[in-house]
Design a protein around this nucleic acid. Structure first.
Lengths: 244, 244
DNA sequence: TCCAAAGCAAGAGCAGTGCTCTCGATTGTG
DNA sequence: CACAATCGAGAGCACTGCTCTTGCTTTGGA
């Protein structure tokens, strides 16, 4: 059903893709604030008004780019995870974190679009939720696998947070202990804090070797959600060989 | 020397302040993207070109607002810290974190201006550095005080990070152990990750009781940099009474 | 096969933007 | 007092998002 029946429908999805491509190109070059519908149309050899047949407004174009960016990031993270799926949880956790950072460094403006300040009056429609959740779900899976084997000791929750923690666990991962879910959500936000600070220049003249710094911070983040050290497996863990 | 000698100079700083005030008002209402020089001028009863006598460009106006925002945040954090200066390190740490979050919630658009995606081709001039550093310096002070008394055990650094950690410690706090400084910088970034996620809607349908969630996450962040529990002081800690 | 309906690109036009330049008027200083 | 610096006002340029109307082309049903 998704195969276009007529030539017209086919042309429509092609033009739509071309518009998004050109918009993405301008986005990467100048940033979201300077993304101009007219410039996109000009570059595509059409007139600005024609573009409104495909996107009812500039914000709708941005929404499409946002969804695509979430999906691109999610796919990158999932692919990176797939390559180390046989390793231990911290290794997988670190791999996902580094993949997210790598994608952010490679697509700074798209990253800013989805994790930076939201556009003026714009509220992301619910249609972006599935794409936006992919990285989070991946992290949940990793933590779930780690807790599957044996229970991991986490610092207990304060009483004031217990109901909320129970609720979050119910929503996100009913098979995980509430303190693990709470720590996970926090680590998830903190991960993007690290990346955002690096990307948005807050580490200027503060952190130089950002690669090493991030690797360490991300690993510590993993420890914070209960993932254990590679060599801590007891059985002379397979996976302790130095990576390239 | 800062007192204006002539009436003209006095008028100048007054008009400059009025422009920033009105700009801040529009910023709070519509966000940075919709901040219009013309609208500011209109509201002030002058013509747009007159405004260029005070700010050479829109970006310069934004820069002024950015510096002011950093200072406002820094002052808020310092004031909050001053009120609990006699308490233990984690309490002071948590107080600063919550003050930062409170300021962010009260001034979301200004927060987005300084910690959100940077504007297009804009690079913050070095003049913003001192104002931008205030919160970070405050956190360093707290950690320094905590480590002053007794050394606190932190997880050792991996070899690859050791030179960078040493360098950072040299730059930021030569009297602190490198692993503490590294953890502190990470926690600093992670703190703003928590706040940014809450503010920019990433916690939508995920975290409900954000107050409690943040308090717990911020406290755990403090533990991560070596700050100990209030009741862990041994001497039946003064400061364990439930705060209002 | 024919024809109305729908989809489409183009152009003109509106209201708004940042910014520049010029022109008088005001103001402070030698 | 006179000169120079400063300031506000206005016109104007190039640009933006967006709307509306005008024709042309494709499509799908009778």
């Amino acid at each position: 059903m998704s195969t276009a029946r007529g030539a017209r429908a086919r042309a429509r999805i092609e033009v739509t893709a071309a518009i998004k491509d050109e918009a993405r190109r301008q986005l990467a070059k100048e940033g979201a604030a300077k993304l101009s519908l007219r410039a996109v149309a000009r570059e595509l050899g059409m007139v600005s008004s024609a573009l409104y047949r495909y996107f009812p407004s500039r914000d709708d174009l941005l929404t499409a780019l946002i969804t695509d960016a979430y999906d691109s990031l999610g796919a990158t993270a999932e692919a990176a995870h797939g390559k180390v799926a046989a390793d231990g949880p911290i290794r997988r956790w670190a791999a996902v974190c580094e993949a997210v950072r790598g994608w952010a460094l490679a697509h700074p403006h798209e990253y800013a679009l989805i994790y930076g300040s939201p556009v003026p009056g714009y509220a992301a429609p619910d249609s972006t939720v599935p794409a936006a959740s992919r990285v989070g779900l991946l992290l949940i899976d990793i933590v779930r696998d780690a807790h599957q084997g044996r229970g991991v000791a986490l610092t207990p929750l304060p009483a004031e947070l217990e109901p909320e923690a129970r609720r979050m666990a119910e929503d996100l991962a009913p098979d995980l202990p509430p303190e693990a879910v709470t720590a996970l959500v926090a680590a998830w936000a903190q991960l993007f804090g690290l990346i955002g600070f690096e990307l948005f220049g807050q580490f200027h003249r503060v952190v130089e070797d950002r690669e090493a710094f991030f690797r360490n911070a991300a690993t510590r983040l993993g420890h914070g959600v209960g993932l254990v050290f590679p060599q801590g497996g007891g059985t002379a863990g397979g996976g302790n060989r130095p990576g390239s």
